[in-house]
Design a protein around this nucleic acid. Structure first.
Length: 569
RNA sequence: GCGCCCGUAGCUCAGUAGGAUAGAGCGGCUGCCUUCUAAGCAGCGGGUCGGGGGUUCGAAUCCCUCCGGGCGCGCCA
């Protein structure tokens, strides 16, 4: 719709130039924007203001010359010049009424746009260490990453979701030691449990399960063999649990990428980390100093890292960053045009070096890192304190248990990622008007109820889409949809493609929660003003189509958010 | 000290590449169910956009500076 109008303005401008009414060498690019004030129309352009200087004319005269050439177009109900020279455009009812059938024809494909143009993007998110339960921050990244993937897919990208499994390194060793120690305690051995080990009760639970399954056979085993065994057992168990919890919130990954695979020797005997470092060294990005190997991160000032970074420590050990570079080399080698990482705010200090490294690998500007700010849990207005060290925390799983997947997802998604999130547990649980999740879902349930009623089977369990198909068969005269509430609702449908485009461009799914609430509100208003099922068959038929288009649009938005669209509440 | 994020109504937050009179939800007050779900709708109040400078036709938005809050600044992972 926006493109259509922008085309009209452009043509009008070109005509005016050709006719000599406007003295411009070429037709400038036309931008349309949504006026804040609906009384200014559906779309506005400041093209006359922007071009005034170059054309040597006053903006209003320019605007008049353009506007007079648009007036009378069947899709345009009004074109006005306002203020200093804005051109305001209002769509005709006929143009709007066409949108209803467009929505119904496209179904859940409605709102698709194509800035991605079939390119491949990978979204990596959560990537929690598989050494313990996820905290609520992981829940936020999970909701964010998954919804972002859905939005990008709706915007023409081919998307892959990936979870990076940190199954190598010191954390795993400590984890293994922790579980082994709890196991030995279970076997009645008196062993020291160090402060730096994992304190959480889940460690003992895992030890207990291993004890239950295998008995005390490991009590007298050689310590390194015991630890290795416990590492694998415990890690596999935690990883399964992570998958399970994420799945409960509707988040499923295409790839679980093992950090270990980066360290394992390949066919040539060299690991991926070796190969990535060879590549960097060959390109002159590495140097030796103080017995360590460094990456010259500051050679990429555009990414703003303030110092060079060690990849191989003086003791010969690799840093985490070295593995991360190899990991990103692997990602790009898999053919993604673009890679997106979602990280917590506590990792923002790594952004510059990681982008510099990707540039050094030959993929400048192809890595986007979204930094999500922290989550604070509130209960009854009080901050819920979390401490990983003492093992006392509200985990993501406990939050899911308490508020449910839909509320959790919706609340996680509702805020800009730049904004730290206060998650009010009480509010998320509340089934009332204060809770935006229910507000939106209720609109959908209401719609389905109307459709069932129209079908004469208010209590049937038939899916709403099937019911809708039955009650909207035959012909309908959509020009009967002329009530302001009806036209406002249609205008709201027409915004979806723009919202999707913006949410994809800005990697900001929260835009969709705002839209969902707007759309639900607009529907509720329509519902209050316009009775759908009446003794006027023609009007009823037209309104049922409008209701069906509302159902489709709402369900599509909820689908992009990953929140259920209940047909009954 | 340096870097990133934030500061907008009583509270929680939007504000779309600088645009027209700064918006929404919640809370408060007042109305609306014999009719498709009242988990809904309508109305009323509520603001020096943290302070101060600057850029221009125009600034919540861009620049500088100061104040306040969060996070981070390892040859840790």
């Amino acid at each position: 719709m926006r493109d259509l109008l922008a085309g009209l303005v452009r043509d009008a401008l070109a005509d005016a130039i050709a006719a000599g009414d406007i003295a411009l060498a070429e037709v400038p690019e036309v931008f349309l924007e949504r006026p804040r004030d609906p009384s200014h129309g559906d779309w506005a352009t400041n093209i006359a203001l922007v071009s005034a200087k170059a054309a040597g004319a006053n903006p209003r005269a320019l605007a008049d010359a353009i506007a007079s050439r648009i007036a009378g177009h069947p899709d345009v109900a009004a074109v006005e010049v306002a203020g200093p020279g804005f051109i305001n455009l209002r769509l005709s009812d006929a143009a709007l009424q066409r949108v209803v059938e467009q929505v119904r024809a496209e179904g859940t494909d409605f709102g698709r746009v194509d800035p991605g143009r079939g390119r491949r993007v990978q979204v990596e998110f959560v990537s929690a260490n598989p050494v313990g339960p996820m905290h609520v921050g992981h829940g936020r990244w999970a909701a964010l990453g998954d919804s972002m993937a859905r939005v990008l897919a709706h915007a023409g990208w081919i998307v892959q979701r990936e979870f990076y499994v940190n199954d190598a390194g010191v954390q795993m060793d400590i984890f293994a030691k922790s579980v082994a120690a709890r196991y030995l305690q279970k076997c009645g051995r008196d062993v020291a449990f160090e402060d730096t080990w994992y304190q959480g009760a889940y460690i003992a639970e895992i030890a207990e399960e291993i004890f239950a399954a295998e008995g005390s056979v490991w009590a007298d085993a050689e310590p390194s063999a015991r630890e290795a065994h416990f590492r694998e057992k415990a890690y596999a168990q935690v990883l399964e649990h992570l998958k399970h919890v994420l799945h409960r919130m509707g988040v499923d990954f295409d790839v679980w990428f093992s950090e270990r695979s980066l360290h394992a020797p390949g066919p040539t005997g060299r690991s991926e980390v070796d190969i990535a470092m060879d590549m960097l060294r060959g390109a002159g990005h590495l140097y030796e100093k103080d017995g360590a190997t460094w990456f010259a991160s500051t050679a990429f000032p555009e990414y703003g890292d303030d110092k060079d970074r060690v990849l191989v420590k003086a003791d010969g050990e690799l840093t985490y960053f070295a593995a991360d570079i190899a990991y990103h080399a692997d990602k790009f080698a898999r053919g993604f045009d673009r890679v997106i990482n979602i990280w917590g705010a506590d990792h923002h200090g790594y952004v510059a070096r990681m982008k510099a490294a990707c540039a050094a690998l030959g993929y400048p500007g192809q890595l986007d890192i979204v930094i999500g700010q922290m989550v604070t849990l509130l209960r009854g207005g009080e901050v819920v304190r979390m401490s990983k060290r003492t093992g006392e925390m509200v985990t993501f799983e406990e939050l899911l248990d308490e508020v449910g997947a839909d509320a959790a997802r919706y609340f996680f998604l509702r805020r800009s990622t730049d904004q730290s999130l206060d998650f009010d547990i009480g509010l998320a649980k509340e089934q009332s008007s204060e809770n935006p999740v229910y507000y939106v879902q209720y609109a959908h349930a209401r719609i389905c109820s109307i459709l069932r009623k129209a079908a004469g089977a208010p209590d049937a369990d038939e899916p709403a889409a099937a019911v809708a198909a039955r009650v909207t068969g035959g012909e309908a005269d959509l020009s009967l949809l002329s009530d302001p509430a009806e036209l406002t609702l249609i205008r709201k449908f027409a915004e979806l493609p723009e919202v999707v485009e913006m949410a994809a461009d800005q990697l900001a799914p929260y835009k969709l929660t705002r839209y969902a609430e707007d759309l639900a509100a607009t529907f509720h208003q329509f519902y209050t003003v316009c009775h759908v099922l009446s003794d006027d068959p023609a009007l009823t038929a037209a309104r049922l189509r409008l209701v069906d288009a509302s159902r489709i649009t709402l369900a599509t938005v909820l689908g992009l958010l990953g929140v259920a669209a209940p047909e009954r509440m």
